[in-house]
């Protein structure tokens, strides 16, 4: 598993945790958890539904790529 997927799992965990904590807490802190919840879930879900890359050399991108 590459580092992006690992970060995706961490993001999913953070997103779930903040979803739960959002309803427990009140006031400004709950807004903070909402703010953490949205982008983390977006990235965490997104990284697992994008199709697998068909590129031969992983990481060496075509544009000016190394």
């Amino acid at each position: 598993m590459d580092i992006e997927k690992k970060v995706g799992i961490v993001c999913l965990i953070i997103g779930m945790l903040s979803f739960i904590l959002m309803f427990i807490t009140n006031g400004l802190i709950s807004y903070l958890f909402y703010i953490l919840f949205v982008p983390n879930i977006l990235y965490g879900v997104g990284i697992f539904i994008v199709p697998k890359t068909r590129r031969k050399k992983l990481g060496k991108i075509p544009f000016r790529g190394y």
Partner: peptide, 10 residues
């Protein structure tokens, strides 16, 4: 959002 990706090694 639904496109395949690969991350640069740099």
């Amino acid at each position: 959002y639904f496109k395949e990706i690969t991350f640069p090694i740099t």
